[in-house]
Design a protein around this nucleic acid. Structure first.
Lengths: 206, 206
DNA sequence: GATTGTGTCAACCTTAAGGATGATTAACCC
DNA sequence: GGGTTAATCATCCTTAAGGTTGACACAATC
């Protein structure tokens, strides 16, 4: 277990009490723990320890484990942003999307877990996700018109394939490692994978 | 929660005590519970209830929750079988593979979860998986030779993409549902999806 | 049909994990 | 600089969940 915070070192110029900083630390620690272990397996005390704070503060600021998860899980997925311009070619957008998960791997893993989970979906996150999908679908239709992928494939279904393929290094990390021998969350691997994915996409253009 | 077993109905011709039947019931119930909730969130008492037996029998037959999980998770993945003939075209094999998950959805979900999990992988399962991947990779190389997909893509990476894409209905069920409005685990959807996936693959052949 | 052993169960025990309580102290305000 | 409030912490409490124990009963064997 790698240290994330310097564990109570009231550094010279730093405030020793700072609610915003504390909340942010808990939030980040929670993303990491929930993302790597899932809600049920994550431990409140581990989150607190990783954040370098007392576990009671999780109740104080977020109303307990459940509240913390709800908040963390409803954060709009960062990988969703910035790629809604309709005129870039599919392969390029796809490459960016595949690399996007790299920016915040914890959140990406959390997103995948939350998506697999059953039970009532997080309402806040669900709506923004629906919104995102609408946008992506419109984009796909435009790119199909532009000839980026064959006319006889269903854009909805194709979008689903691409999303799954793009997240392979996060959703099938062990397979990825067994196949390539590399660490699938390393920057070099993700870059390489994204490039290959874009290459395949280009072969689909007419 | 849907009933799986007829709850203690010692039907006419049936034995009321049958260790094999009991073990099998627990095994199936465990696959379903572990597959849909994950190890940590699964409840031993829920598994027992689903199997229609007393929860103590899980300790009796499998040595507790952990032992049961180990056994269930090391069962060779059924979707891995039957597709190692090297001369069928990629698109056909891919279509079968995508449909394969349908046969035992519980196991497929469990497989995905286990693959995402961190910590020491299940040794028994890991070896057979490695074996499977070797075989699939050999197949991919052969099909690349045969021109089923472009020569400038890395077969390892491409295999990873295909596996992820093929399991999309199980790994991204909510996205799938939000996109298509259909139940992604329904037979009709999986068939449709597999067919579309094969179609895309055919477009890659030179 | 009595005996023995194995399959099954209900009730109890233990513990880990999340949450609550009250004390303590830094930061802000006058 | 004294007082007030908010932030932080150590300790205790509660409970859900997995495991254990001992009773009981079906079924195989003689």
């Amino acid at each position: 277990m790698s240290e994330t915070t310097p564990r109570r070192a009231p550094r010279p110029g730093e405030r020793q009490r700072d609610p915003e900083r504390t909340k942010a630390r808990i939030f980040e620690a929670a993303k990491a723990e929930f993302g790597s272990k899932g809600y049920a397996a994550a431990r409140v005390s581990d989150i607190a320890q990783r954040a370098g704070v007392n576990k009671q503060l999780i109740s104080y600021y977020f109303g307990g484990k459940e509240g913390l998860y709800a908040e963390v899980a409803s954060e709009p997925f960062a990988g969703f942003a910035a790629m809604t311009t309709t005129d870039r070619p599919l392969a390029d957008v796809l490459e960016d999307f595949a690399k996007g998960g790299l920016a915040d791997q914890d959140q990406a893993r959390l997103f995948l877990r939350e998506n697999m989970a059953e039970g009532a979906p997080n309402e806040a996150g669900a709506e923004s996700q629906r919104e995102f999908l609408r946008g992506q679908l419109a984009y796909m239709r435009a790119r199909q018109e532009a000839g980026d992928f064959p006319a006889d494939v269903d854009p909805k279904t194709f979008l689903l394939m691409l999303m799954a393929a793009a997240s392979a290094p996060m959703s099938l990390p062990r397979i990825a490692e067994a196949l390539t021998g590399e660490n699938p969350s390393s920057e070099s691997f993700v870059e390489y994978y994204a490039e290959q994915l874009a290459r395949v996409a280009r072969h689909l253009a007419g």
